[in-house]
Amino acid sequence: MRIETRLAQAGNRKDPVTGAVSVPIHHSTTFAHPALGQSTGFDYTRTLNPTRKVLEDTIADLENGVRGFAFASGMAAIACLVELFEPGDHLVASNDLYGGTYRLLEQILRRKGIETTYVDTGDLAAVEAAVQPNTKALFVETPTNPTMKITDIAGCAAIAKRRGALTIVDNTFMSPYFQRPLDLGADVVLHSGTKYLGGHNDVLCGLLAVKDEQLGEKLFFLQNSIGAVLGPQDCWLMIRGLKTLALRMEKHQENALLVAEWLSRHPQVTKVYYPGLPHHPGKHMHEKQSSGYGGMLSFEVADESMVEPILGSVKLISFAESLGGVESLITYPARQTHFDIPKEVREAYGVTDRLLRLSVGIEHYQDIIADLEQALEAARSEVSVR
Rank of each mutant, 00 (worst) to 15 (best):
M174R: 09
F69S: 02
N134S: 15
H266K: 09
S192Q: 04
D303I: 02
A320P: 00
L207N: 11
Y273Q: 05
G155F: 02
R67F: 03
Y44K: 12
V269A: 13
P24R: 09
G155V: 01
V140P: 03
D170P: 07
P275V: 09
A302V: 13
Q268L: 15
I25T: 15
D123H: 07
D183G: 06
V210N: 06
T151A: 15
V82D: 05
T331E: 15
L219F: 03
L376H: 02
T331P: 00
E300I: 02
A302C: 08
K271W: 09
C80I: 01
L84S: 06
I226W: 15
M285I: 14
S322K: 05
R354P: 00
V21K: 11
V17N: 14
L245Y: 04
D234F: 02
E300K: 07
I317D: 15
G231A: 09
V189F: 04
D57G: 09
L105M: 13
V326W: 05
V119N: 02
L358M: 08
E250D: 15
H266C: 05
F299I: 08
V189E: 10
F221M: 12
R380K: 14
A228L: 13
L105C: 06
I108Q: 08
H364P: 13
A375P: 10
L355D: 00
T51F: 06
T116P: 05
S381I: 04
G193L: 03
R346I: 05
D89K: 08
F42N: 06
E213M: 11
L372C: 07
P87A: 12
S305D: 15
P16V: 06
F220W: 11
C156L: 06
N134H: 12
V131P: 07
H364K: 06
E321F: 02
I168D: 02
G193T: 02
P181L: 11
A348E: 14
I153F: 06
N171E: 07
E4R: 10
G113S: 10
A375Q: 03
S359G: 14
L219E: 03
P146Q: 04
P50R: 07
E347H: 12
E63D: 13
E382P: 00
A302F: 04
L138K: 05
G193K: 01
W236Q: 12
R52H: 01
G88P: 07
H284T: 15
I108T: 15
G294E: 05
K243W: 00
G199L: 03
E373K: 13
E63K: 03
V345F: 02
E377L: 10
G122P: 00
A35I: 09
I108H: 08
Y118R: 06
Y98E: 12
S73P: 01
E56I: 12
V307L: 01
G155T: 00
N49K: 05
V131C: 14
L190P: 00
A72D: 14
A246H: 11
Q9W: 08
L257M: 13
T18E: 15
E217G: 08
A302D: 11
R110N: 03
L245W: 05
S313W: 02
T331G: 04
T142D: 11
G37I: 14
I330C: 09
G231W: 03
D202I: 01
